[in-house]
Simulated scan of single mutants.
Amino acid sequence: MSEPEGRLTPTSPAALTAAVVLGLVLGWLARPVTTAWLGSAPVVTWVQPALLALVALVVGVTARHTHVSLQQRREPMEPHRAVNRLAFGRASAYAGALVGAGYAGYALSWLGLSAELAGQRMLWSGLAALAGVAVVACGLALERACRVPEDDPDA
């Protein structure tokens, strides 16, 4: 059975899973590839998890505002604005999955190594991965907030 014409389906779990797998592989490969090409691995500091947390905060606040406007107050929203927020939520979920998993893969690539900054890289990469999970959750929340109630005749 196909979806009615003009309706969008929610973010695909398969696509999110593919982004996570791709991110893990690319993150895990980052250390050996950059070490071979540049002679050293990238350093991860507090900036990366902080920026991802800021992105999660922006997406989360947008999701909350959208939810209150559309679901609780039932205020109308211009169609282009609703589509923009839906696209922003979906893109945030996919990007958060890819980037967060990339940092997780990078952290995993340091397990068992006694390199100079291995512990620091694992810590900050792990925190960035957690912030990436927050971006995914907030992106999915924003996408969900953009749903039009089933009983809306203008849907």
Results as ranks from 00 to 15, higher is better:
A131C: 05
L52V: 06
L57N: 03
P79E: 15
P10A: 07
T34P: 01
L52G: 07
Q71E: 12
M77A: 14
W110F: 12
E5R: 02
G126F: 04
R121A: 10
V133G: 11
G89P: 00
V21I: 15
A101D: 01
R64I: 09
T34M: 12
R7Q: 13
V43G: 11
G102E: 05
D154E: 14
V58A: 14
H67F: 13
A118T: 08
S109A: 15
T35I: 02
A82T: 07
T34N: 10
A63H: 06
L8K: 07
V25N: 05
Q71F: 04
A128G: 02
Q71L: 05
D154T: 12
L38S: 06
G119K: 08
R121I: 00
E150A: 10
R90T: 10
A53W: 00
L130T: 03
A53E: 00
R85K: 15
G139I: 03
W124L: 07
G27M: 05
A14C: 03
A131G: 01
G112D: 09
G102M: 06
V59C: 07
L26H: 00
E116Q: 13
D151S: 06
L130F: 07
V61R: 15
A18F: 08
A41S: 15
A129L: 00
V44R: 01
R90N: 08
A97V: 02
Y106P: 05
E150C: 00
V33H: 02
C146V: 05
S69V: 11
P79R: 12
W110C: 01
C138S: 15
E116K: 07
C138H: 12
R147L: 14
T35P: 01
R90D: 08
T66W: 08
A18W: 09
W37R: 14
R74Q: 12
A141M: 12
L98G: 11
G105L: 05
M122K: 02
R90G: 03
A63M: 04
V61H: 08
S2M: 08
V44W: 01
V43M: 14
T66K: 07
E143F: 04
A128H: 02
L117Q: 13
E150I: 01
W37T: 14
L117R: 15
G132M: 08
A145D: 15
C138D: 09
L16F: 05
W124F: 15
